[in-house]
């Protein structure tokens, strides 16, 4: 079972964004939070509309989590909050990837359902963080996708990897989403390779983050002629390991 979420269309998103710009504190947005907006729409078919109880439960859970991290005061341990929120959203929303790719849906979450939390996480946010313009920057959308791309049902904790890959690294992957990140298989195996290299001490002599960035650059060079998606996991891991080592080797030479 998966749900269809309301989508906040552009004009209304802009309107709310403009209104909220004048609100001094996220606490003042608690009253603006709603489970419904008159101008929200649903995709016509393909599942059940999310019941209002589920929306309230979701907002309650997110709000509780925010409170644990300092809401309404300055966010504490924002990275930790993001990881926990990524788990929460991915586990509880019951939404399909194609539905989750709808940017308007995320705008509904940030501007109607949870404006207080959104504006607390990113005070005075640029539009991308809360509107329907860019999922890769959206306060909630980017986290769901982060969880979706790395979650691995083969692991005891399917979201374990969220903790391995930091936000900056993930942004690297995500900004190359179309090239490589679009494939959960590649992302998952790349992370597997990366933690393996780290355990083997192969990253000891280099700047971890720079090495990761270089690996992505090398990867970017081979994907035009190597279809990594066509491979089974064994061959894929082999290729990814080779790519990573090539990048690391170049840094040491």
């Amino acid at each position: 079972m998966s749900y269809l979420y309301p989508r906040l269309i552009g004009g209304r998103a802009q309107q709310l964004f403009d209104e909220f710009a004048a609100v001094p504190s996220p606490n003042d947005l608690v009253d603006r939070a709603r489970t419904h907006d008159d101008s929200a729409v649903y995709v016509a078919t393909g599942g059940a509309r999310v019941p209002v109880e589920k929306l309230s439960a979701l907002s309650t859970a997110v709000r509780d989590l925010a409170r644990e991290h300092g809401f309404p005061h300055k966010a504490q341990r924002a990275g930790e909050f993001d990881v926990a929120l990524a788990r929460l959203l991915h586990r509880s929303m019951e939404v399909m990837p194609a539905e989750a790719a709808a940017r308007e849906m995320w705008a509904f979450l940030s501007l109607v359902l949870l404006p207080d939390v959104a504006y607390w996480r990113f005070p005075a946010p640029p539009g991308d963080r809360v509107m329907h313009t860019d999922i890769t920057r959206h306060v909630f959308g980017r986290l769901w996708w982060r969880a979706d791309l790395i979650h691995d049902l083969a692991r005891e904790d399917p979201y374990e990897v969220l903790e391995i890959l930091g936000e900056a690294d993930f942004d690297q992957v995500y900004s190359r989403r179309k090239q490589i990140g679009a494939s959960p298989t590649i992302v998952r195996n790349l992370i597997r390779v990366w933690s393996e290299l780290r355990e083997n001490g192969e990253l000891a002599l280099v700047n971890d983050r720079q090495a990761f960035r270089n690996t992505l650059m090398v990867l970017n060079r081979v994907v035009p002629f190597l279809s990594l998606n066509a491979l089974d996991d064994h061959a894929l891991v082999g290729e990814l390991r080779r790519i990573a080592r090539q990048a690391i080797g170049r840094m040491q030479s």
């Binding site: 079972m1 989508r7 995709v43 016509a44 078919t45 393909g46 599942g47 059940a48 509309r49 709808a102």
Partner: peptide, 26 residues
């Protein structure tokens, strides 16, 4: 009540004349 997992796209198109002018996502 949970919607059944029935593919309804075709049915929905059948009714689309009653929905003209509303941009669909469907």
């Amino acid at each position: 009540s949970d919607g059944q997992n029935v593919a309804l796209g075709a049915a929905s198109n059948y009714f689309s004349r009653l929905m003209r002018g509303s941009t669909g996502f469907g």
